[in-house]
Design a protein around this nucleic acid. Structure first.
Lengths: 339, 339
DNA sequence: CTGAAAGCGCTAACAA
DNA sequence: TTGTTAGCGCTTTCAG
């Protein structure tokens, strides 16, 4: 492994001072065109690539932003990442992507790694309502700008960008009620995660507004994945009486439910109506396309990126900014949609 | 924005030399337990987080690996990323994820950013057979270990991990021939991308082995996405005579074809058989589940990561290592599968 | 237009 | 067990 060449090697090669080389390489003023040309030629010949560790150390700036999401393999997050990347790359930032897998400890580790590498800012979809606060406070205490995206943590003094999870769920469930479904079950996600908790709240409030009673069997607790949906469906199938509508916390869960019900001969939407949340592409490809709530993941990304950029450029406001991206009902064949 | 504390602040706080603090923080030998305790307490109180820019500069090691993929939003790549991450995180490396969007210029930029940040190694799924060589040679010339994954670039002296694209395609097409399909069309991807070119080669060789003639209309040129599949299907629909089997370069394309054919009243597999490549989850959820070739994306990731780790730990071999991960035929309802 | 000195935050090597 | 010196590769002063 050969040694990489440095600014010093170029200086020696050109018989100039390190300083002149540094200036020429950065296109700074006050360098004789002839000199600059010699330097550039030498840099090329020596295969010089600047060492940004050194530059960043001096400048206290890395042009790097850290991203922490639960799991990049979940359909929603690549879209979000793309939104972030489009905006931030454009402005000269590079991205560190980390996954927390919804584990608080892992999240903490990843954030530490980012802080040690002195990223200019962090965009975080926190793993836990109850336990991520410490991690976020740690970022804040280092004076590192942070934007929470998709998920909130109450009581944290950070900028946030979320979708209207509560409103979306409320609207969805209200639609089901209007369609005269009598027994609407919510397959809910972990209540320690913001989006899941907001969607449950949307369900609850919509039911309450329609004077529907909510019994424990109306709520099935599960996770966020396809497999979690399969399990939830099995539990429902084991009951004496199936619901006539199921509102799932997200699309992967809904698709898991869909598949299990279908494999057990249940006809959607005739016997059971089914809905998800997020509008990932897969839902539309099902034999019976999935009614859902559209969330613009990429827009969440661009908004979060813009907010971070504003802070990076010195935006000072007393209060943290809380931005919401609207959701939209998407009615497809997995529910009855009269009128 | 308050100033972050450094090792120097702790030294002042404890009335010790910087060196002693450095040692204590790294759990090095030869520090009085009492002293270490004081230092640790002080570090905590001052909210000290080590500056790895400085450490990395001295140690010439960043514990960071750069990943460059075409597009993290494509189902295949999150799985690959996960494989990489599992292995590399475990061994203390953090990951820089970049997307090239199949653009050579963007790829070049991303690689430069990684090299400037002095990543310890790079894992790359190259954008172009004909144009990525320069970029890869640039990495190599810096003495930076690199592993090509999923896609190759001929004539490059780097370790590689690929799936058996040729064999998988050959097997698939041979199966279609055995099922007595007469007019088998290949919806091919860009021939400047390794996987697409290998799959076309698999198609061609299988046809040749069965003494089938290949005419220009047997091959439809398109891209890698769902939309590309839709376009290809429209072109086929416009023909006088539809094929009786379509082998698509990958699953997203196949699903795009599927949807367009279905929307035009074509029954799969009765009128047209359809197959993809990759076995992404979506293919199984279609009304008529998709016959395809399974590729273990995560395994590609773990293999590539292990290969890189070996190089990072000083593995020296004359020749680059070329590892292949097997593929497997997945027969589902979108093709006739007799016997 | 060019250069010398100092320092970013840390560690390796040697000395006390 | 602790401290001193030098230096990683670069940039910011301030001088020439």
């Amino acid at each position: 492994m050969k040694k990489r060449s440095s600014i010093k090697d170029i200086a020696r090669d050109c018989e100039l001072s390190v300083m002149t080389v540094s200036r020429a390489l950065r296109n700074a003023y006050g360098i004789h065109p002839k000199t600059r040309e010699r330097i550039l030629e030498s840099a090329k010949r020596l295969e010089y690539i600047p060492n940004r560790l050194a530059t960043n150390l001096v400048l206290r700036k890395t042009d790097t932003v850290g991203i922490v999401v639960p799991d990049i393999a979940r359909s929603f997050f690549p879209a979000l990442f793309r939104g972030l990347e489009m905006v931030l790359n454009e402005r000269g930032y590079h991205l560190f992507l980390c996954c927390s897998y919804d584990q608080v400890v892992k999240e903490q580790e990843q954030v530490m790694a980012l802080l040690e590498r002195r990223v200019d800012g962090i965009i975080l979809a926190p793993a836990s309502i109850s336990q991520s606060k410490g991690t976020i406070d740690c970022i804040l205490s280092q004076g590192c700008p942070v934007v929470l995206v998709d998920r909130l943590v109450p009581g944290v003094q950070a900028d946030t960008v979320t979708a209207t999870d509560f409103e979306g769920a409320y609207e969805m469930v209200t639609h089901l009620i209007k369609q005269k479904y009598q027994n609407i079950v919510h397959v809910a996600g972990s209540q320690d995660i913001w989006t899941a908790s907001e969607r449950l709240r949307g369900y609850t409030e919509a039911m309450r507004a329609a004077k529907r009673e909510i019994h424990p069997e109306h709520i099935v607790q599960t996770g966020f994945t396809f497999e979690d949906g399969e399990n939830a469906a099995k539990m429902l199938l084991a009951r004496k009486k199936m619901p006539d509508a199921i509102f799932c916390v997200n699309d992967p869960v809904a698709i898991g439910v869909y598949k299990t019900l279908r494999d057990n001969g249940i006809v959607i939407p005739d016997q059971v109506a089914l809905t998800g949340f997020s509008a990932i592409a897969e839902g539309e490809l099902l034999e019976v396309p999935l009614t859902t709530v559209r969330q613009d993941a990429q827009a969440l990304g661009t908004e979060a990126a813009n907010l971070l950029l504003a802070r990076l450029n010195g935006l000072k406001t007393e209060m943290p900014v809380a931005k919401q991206v609207p959701t939209e009902l998407v009615l497809r064949a997995s529910t009855r949609n009269n009128k």
